[in-house]
Design a protein around this nucleic acid. Structure first.
Length: 263
DNA sequence: CCAGACGTTGTT
DNA sequence: GTCTGG
DNA sequence: CCAGACGTTGTT
DNA sequence: GTCTGG
């Protein structure tokens, strides 16, 4: 699946150097660590541009270039690796516009006694987690604006993720990153070479670990380090419950939201 | 041929 | 139940 | 992915 | 743009 992820690297400079990218001051100004990247958000992708790796922002939810109206357009956030070649929305991006989605962990939810309980899957040894992705650029017919968007490719889960969900993002490691980004078209078919299909497999065991985290992450407005902390355990005995205080039957009482933004 | 869709996940 | 917004 | 809305007319 | 359904 993969419908929410993190990119918590503290600075753009550290991110760029980890990816072997020449830093751009303009891009640096746009960077901030993210603890709750949600569909529709702008975030960071890596792609080839004139033969060079480029780190840039794109919006999560792929809008194919042939889309007539941006309003109301479907924006798939995921693309099944098994069927990329068959789908009009993905086929040309698979051939010509592959990207890498830059992250350091993703969330999956499982139902629990206290509601949807989020689990953060992230690299055991820390560092980046890179997903195989597709992008496209939609051009507004009224203007010259290019609107870049992307989708994360999914595959079957490995043993770690399987108990929680039946899909997971395709993770690229080592030389799979450059193979994914740089493979030329197969001259005999005019499409992406068959060797790319082999990359769209679940990661081996031991790459990722699972950490239960705070249900605060369920709300997309919570985008700070607190989402990666464990929730307070439910006060189950009088030691943990201050005298005279009544537990809510409905779980924690969230303070009122900050004022809505006017439109 | 033209018209219309073009996606995924999860839940019931 | 289904759509929209983030 | 989850959370929250889900509507119209007319008036300012 | 490209595929599917009729």
């Amino acid at each position: 699946m993969c419908g929410r992820f993190t990119l918590t690297v503290p600075t753009y400079e550290l991110l760029a150097s980890s990816l072997g990218i020449a830093p751009s001051p303009e891009q640096a100004a746009l960077y901030r660590p993210r603890y709750n990247v949600a569909p529709g958000n702008a975030t960071w992708i890596l792609r080839m541009r004139d033969g060079v790796r480029e780190l840039s922002q794109a919006e999560w939810g792929l809008v194919p270039r042939w889309t007539k109206e941006l309003a109301g357009a479907r924006r798939p956030i995921n693309a099944r690796g098994e069927t990329l070649r068959d789908k009009p929305s993905f086929r040309s991006s698979y051939d010509k516009r592959r990207c890498v989605v830059v992250s350091d962990g993703f969330f999956e939810w499982k139902p629990g006694p206290r509601g949807k309980e989020p689990i953060w899957f992230h690299p055991k040894d820390g560092g980046l987690l890179l997903y195989a992705g597709l992008y496209d650029e939609w051009r507004d017919p009224e203007g010259a604006e290019l609107h870049p968007t992307f989708a994360v490719i999914t595959t079957t889960p490995n043993e770690l993720v399987r108990p929680v969900h039946d899909r997971m993002p395709v993770v690229l490691r080592g030389d799979a990153v450059s193979r994914w980004l740089e493979a030329p078209l197969d001259p005999s078919t005019g499409h992406a070479p068959a060797e790319l299909d082999a990359l769209l497999a679940p990661p081996g065991e031991g790459v990722l670990v699972a950490l239960p985290v705070s249900r605060r992450v369920n709300d997309v407005h919570h985008d700070d380090p607190s989402v990666l902390r464990a929730d307070e355990p439910e006060a189950a005995n009088d030691e943990a419950t201050p005298r005279g205080q009544t537990l809510s039957l409905f779980g924690d009482v969230t303070p009122p939201r900050t004022k809505r933004r006017a439109r």
